[in-house]
C-alpha cells in the first residue's frame, strides 16, 4: 500500500552516487579481513563422511538414470552468533554433480531463452511431480512427502554462467504464502516447505550450504531414520515473540540436497515427530 503523497516525497530521497561507490569500495578493501568468521562454533556431530547407506533409485522415464545415495555432510557447524542472525553450515559429503544429459529439452530451452539479466527461470506446475516430468529429473522417493497436501510448487532453473547449473524443486503445503526472489523462496505462516536442490556438471562443485536466519537462535542435532537415512535436524527458536518456532531437516542424498522446513504452531514435540516422519519417508 503506497500512498501517492508519500511516494512523491520519499522517492526524491536518494543516496548519492559517491556514497554508493564508497560502500562498494569499502567492501572490496575489507575483503581479506572479513573472511574470518567471528564465532564459528564447530559441533562434534559428523566430522567424517559416513559410510554410505545405500540405495539407488533408478528412475523410469529419465533420459539418464540418476543414482541417489543417502549420506552425511562432512561438517555441520553453527555459524553467526552475531547480533542479527544465526544459522548453520553444511559442507562436504558424497555429493555428485548431475550430468546435463539428464535434463529435458524444456529445461535447456528455459536456460537458453532467458531474458537478459534474468539468471533464474521458473516453471510452475500443479505439484513437483509435474516439475519432475518437465525437467527429466526424478527426485528420491519419499512416500511421506508425496502424501503432504500441496499448496503450490515451483522449479527454479539457475543458469548463472553457461547453462543450467542448479535446479531447485520447491513444494509447500496449504496455508502458506510464498514469495519468490531471485535466488530462492520464502515461506510465511504455518506449514511445511520442502526444497530439493541439485547441481549439474556446470557447477564446479556442490557448494557449502550456509543458512542464516535473522531473528532466530539455532541448535542442531543428528537423526537417523528407520531406513538409515541421516538428517541434520535444526531447531530455530525465535528471539521475538511474534515469530513462530521452526524445525528444519537437511538430508544429503548424494546428488540431491533436501531441506524440509516446518513452522511449529502447537506442540514442539508433535512438530518434531512430524519432521521425523517425513525423514523416515525416504526409502534409504
Amino acid at each position: 500500500m503506497k500512498n501517492r503523497a508519500f511516494e512523491k516525497a520519499f522517492s526524491d530521497l536518494k543516496l548519492s552516487g559517491d556514497v554508493r561507490e564508497r560502500i562498494l569500495d569499502a567492501a572490496l578493501e575489507s575483503d581479506d579481513k572479513v573472511k574470518v568468521r567471528r564465532s564459528a562454533r564447530p559441533l562434534r556431530l559428523a566430522a567424517v563422511a559416513a559410510a554410505v547407506t545405500a540405495a539407488v533409485c533408478l528412475m523410469a522415464g529419465t533420459a539418464l538414470a540418476v543414482a541417489y545415495v543417502s549420506g552425511r555432510f562432512d561438517t555441520v557447524e553453527v555459524i553467526g552468533g552475531g547480533e542479527y542472525a544465526n544459522g548453520y553450515r553444511l559442507s562436504g559429503g558424497e555429493n555428485q554433480l548431475l550430468p546435463l544429459d539428464v535434463l529435458s529439452d524444456g529445461v535447456m530451452a528455459m536456460s537458453e531463452e532467458r531474458p537478459e539479466g534474468e539468471a533464474v527461470r521458473e516453471f510452475q506446475g500443479e505439484n513437483w511431480k509435474a516439475a519432475q516430468e518437465f525437467s527429466g529429473v526424478v527426485l528420491p522417493e519419499n512416500s511421506a512427502i508425496d502424501a503432504l497436501p500441496v499448496g503450490g510448487s515451483a522449479l527454479k532453473v539457475d543458469s548463472r554462467g553457461e547453462g543450467p547449473a542448479r535446479l531447485t524443486f520447491i513444494q509447500w503445503t496449504d496455508g502458506l504464502e510464498m514469495s519468490f526472489g531471485e535466488y530462492s523462496s520464502q515461506s510465511m505462516g504455518a506449514g511445511t516447505t520442502v526444497t530439493a536442490e541439485l547441481y549439474t556438471e556446470l557447477a564446479e562443485k556442490v557448494p557449502t550450504q550456509d543458512r542464516y536466519y535473522a531473528f532466530y537462535d539455532c541448535t542442531v542435532e543428528e537423526y537417523t531414520s528407520v531406513n538409515g537415512v541421516n538428517a541434520v535436524i535444526t531447531r530455530l527458536t525465535p528471539n521475538e515473540p511474534e515469530r513462530e518456532e521452526k524445525l528444519l531437516a537437511d538430508i544429503n542424498m548424494g546428488s540431491c540436497l533436501f531441506h524440509i522446513e516446518s513452522s511449529v504452531t502447537s506442540s514442539s514435540e508433535e512438530a518434531l515427530k512430524e519432521l521425523y516422519r517425513l525423514v523416515d519417508g525416504f526409502a534409504g
Binding site: A27, V34, K35, S179, F180, G181, E182, S184, Q186, Y212
Partner: peptide
Amino acid sequence: WRSDRSFTSQE
C-alpha cells in the same frame, strides 16, 4: 558484507 550470510529471498 561482513556477515557472509545467505538469504532465503529478496524479501
